[in-house]
Nucleic acid binder design. Structure first.
Length: 661
RNA sequence: GCUGCUGUAGCUCAGUGGUAGAGCGCACCCUUGGUAAGGGUGAGGCCGAGAGUUCAAUUCUCUCCAGCAGCACCA
């Protein structure tokens, strides 16, 4: 007598299926169209192979290409396997390691056989070709359960040292799953996979590049070749993705920074920025904006030394491991003779500050602070230097000299939650002013940390309480916190969907202790303040980089280095153009006039490429009528306005968002 | 820091074992033209730095520096 399994479907219906039947059988029972479209199945919440039998009564949801997130993940994982199979087919002796799906595709880490060079860009077309053959062959992907020892034996026989090492680390006696591709290739894998390679669209993937990657992500291990591909459900999606990549390339702040003459970098000061007048204008506008916000929120601005004695950094705890990221300076007069060493090697050490916190504690410690004075909010546009690994440097995004919109709030235990809440509100106002969406993440205690578990419990809960009180949602990141404090992180999403971590607030009980910061409480005794580290832009450099990419260089008018250019059509109206310019400048608009002997088409093209938001074009007609023809960047039509109307319009457009009434 | 690739005019790039070329930009001249490139002439380069091979190196080799992609790192 066969027992029937009850399979519940998402619409609430229940089908009875024979024992041993699979999700595919259910799909086939519903209809041949669905059977063909079904890629995999969600069984009791877990994504599984379409051909894997049910193990009892189950809830089933069939996954088709309409369930895009699940389908993409499956497809990408399959592509990764096919990549590994293709590489081994082409170059026997290649060792495979592992290859997961990524946000836009997949990769696989492989080790080329000793007989050849590591794989490179020139190998990719052949690999792609082989992958298409495997897809075309429509090889079934079959799940099989092996004993751990059998699998280890297989890997060792085949010289797959990495796979064998990995299998050995899995628990003794555990059964492992492998997936066959046809009858001639298999990989150790948890799955799930599609039913066969032919389910993939051979035109929906592209191998993108190769790169070095360490075995298990550890730089002491062997370096493998990672082959990256992008993969989608169909050709159209692939094309769209390649187009987006091209878009991102056009927005690259390094390229736009040069084209718009904002800043430059050069090897004599690699990792530090040479700001040009136009770029620094953006900086100054941002700084003025942030000063207004911080002044309004009860912060007081300070300025602290760039160089401090090493003993100070010893006390703060940075002189240990963190020293490798610091620039150190001998405290002595260098030898100016032609002979001998420039420095003596036995002078005391000083260091450029990599952060502002210790200096802010020193300011806090001046005099005696009463609980009545708390909270004390000390802000600084703090210029810091960090000796970053050279490979980490990247345009404005990762630099060796940067300026933070930093502040430290010293408060009592009771004030932490309300101070964090106030900061959450302030950060929200700022990000909204720039039109950014964001997500908040809470980075929790790391393995290596200072402070008691009780303090960590408290600190983490305070941050959660503040978020809850502000009605916000967040994601928790276990183990990602700083060694002294949990952090809230603000991750912005830009115009093309990339995310950037910028703002942060961290509640720290470690540094006040190490640097012995105290205040006098109501009881007349000394108490430790809690120190909140916080920033909203993160750094001016990075934030400007993000703004350039987010707006593709077309900055909001209030930030645009040049807000308007007056361009006369014929030189007879140069005088009028200059009168217009004088009025604009008097109204506080950043403007210039372009009196060059060039055609109006040429001037329009040039200033449009330079992303000037408004062009004021004047000819004989405008001079006679006392008007200007305004052409706004990104709009096709021009508007003819009287000079006064134009100035009112531009003044309004150029008002910073926090000053709009 | 690791792996790979790259380094030629201000920018984007071509090229060669016998000390170099284009387009854009720049300067000057002609042109005064109504909404994204008018025409002409000209200036501009120790071919990233150092060493080696060679009669001869920008070109080949090595080392270093920087940049790019990825990895690792980002308290």
């Amino acid at each position: 007598m066969t027992e029937l399994l009850k399979i519940s479907l998402p619409d609430g219906s229940v089908r009875e299926m024979e024992a041993g039947s699979t999700p595919y059988d259910v799909a086939a029972a519903i209809g041949p169209g669905l059977a063909k479209a079904a890629l995999a199945a969600r069984v009791n919440g877990e994504v599984r192979d379409i051909g894997r039998p049910f193990e009892g009564d189950s809830e089933l949801a069939l996954i088709t290409s309409k369930d895009e997130a699940d389908a993409l993940e499956l497809v990408r994982h399959d592509f990764a396997h096919i990549l590994a199979e293709a590489v081994q087919a082409l170059w026997p002796g290649t060792q495979i390691t592992f290859g997961p799906a990524t946000d836009d595709g997949f990769y696989y880490d492989v080790m080329a056989p000793a007989t050849r060079e590591p794989f490179g860009l020139e190998d990719l077309p052949a690999i792609e070709e082989k992958m298409r053959e495997i897809i075309k062959a429509d090889k079934p992907l079959r799940r099989e359960v092996w004993s751990r020892n059998d699998l280890i034996a297989k890997w060792e026989t085949e010289g797959e040292a990495f796979k064998a090492e990995w299998a050995k680390e899995l628990p003794e006696g555990e059964d492992l799953t492998v997936y066959w591709s046809g009858d001639d290739w298999l990989d150790m894998c948890r799955g799930p996979h599609l039913a066969s390679t032919g389910k993939l669209d051979p035109q929906a993937f592209k191998l993108m590049r190769t790169a070095g990657a360490y075995w298990r992500g550890d730089q002491r291990n062997a370096q493998l070749t990672r082959i990256y591909g992008t993969a989608w459900l169909n050709k159209k999606q692939l094309k769209q993705h390649l187009h987006n990549l091209e878009e991102a390339g056009k927005r690259d702040h390094r390229k736009l920074g040069r084209e718009m003459d904002l800043f430059h970098l050069q090897e004599e000061a690699h990792g530090s920025v040479f700001w040009h007048p136009k770029g620094y204008r953006i900086w100054r506008e941002l700084e003025a904006y942030m000063r207004r916000k911080m002044d309004g929120a009860g912060y007081r601005e300070i300025k602290t030394p760039q160089v401090m004695d090493a003993r100070q950094w010893e006390q703060s705890g940075h002189w240990g491991k963190y020293r490798e990221n610091m620039f150190v300076i001998p405290d002595e007069v260098p030898n100016t003779e032609d002979e001998g060493d420039i420095i003596s090697k036995d002078a005391d050490w000083m260091a450029l500050k990599p952060m502002n916190c210790p200096a802010h504690v020193l300011v806090f410690k001046q005099g005696i602070t009463s609980y009545r004075d708390l909270p004390i909010r000390l802000g600084e546009m703090g210029c810091c230097h960090r000796n970053e690994p050279h490979g980490a440097l990247h345009g404005l995004m990762r630099v060796r000299q940067f300026t933070q919109d930093d502040a430290h709030i010293f408060c009592t235990e009771d004030q932490v939650v309300e101070e964090v809440q106030a900061f959450i509100t302030l950060a929200d106002e700022v990000y909204r002013d720039f039109g950014f969406e964001y997500k908040i993440k809470l980075a929790l205690r790391p393995e290596q940390r200072f402070g008691s578990d009780a303090d960590w419990d408290k600190a983490e809960q305070e941050l959660r309480d503040a978020l809850t009180a502000n009605g916000l949602e967040w994601e928790e990141l276990p183990g990602e916190g700083a060694f002294y404090a949990p952090k809230l992180e603000w991750h912005l999403t830009d115009a093309i969907g990339r995310t950037w971590q910028v703002g942060t607030i961290q509640s720290d009980r470690v540094l006040p202790d190490r640097l012995d910061a105290t205040y006098i409480g109501e009881d007349g005794e000394k108490h430790r303040p809690v120190m909140l580290h916080r920033a909203i832009f993160g750094s001016y450099e990075r934030f400007i980089g993000i703004l350039i990419e987010h707006f593709a260089g077309r900055l909001p008018v209030w930030l645009a280095p040049m807000q308007a250019v007056v361009a006369p059509i014929v030189s007879d109206v140069d005088g009028y153009a200059n009168r217009v310019l004088t009025k604009l400048e008097a109204a506080g608009i950043r403007a210039s006039s372009d009196l060059r002997n060039e055609k109006i088409n040429y001037k329009i093209r040039e200033h449009s490429l330079a992303k000037v938001p408004h062009l004021l074009i004047v000819g004989k007609r405008e001079e006679e009528e006392g008007t200007v023809a305004i052409r706004t960047l990104g709009e096709k039509d021009q508007k003819v306005l009287s000079l006064d109307e134009a100035i009112a319009m531009l003044t309004k457009a150029a008002t910073a968002p926090d000053l709009v009434t």
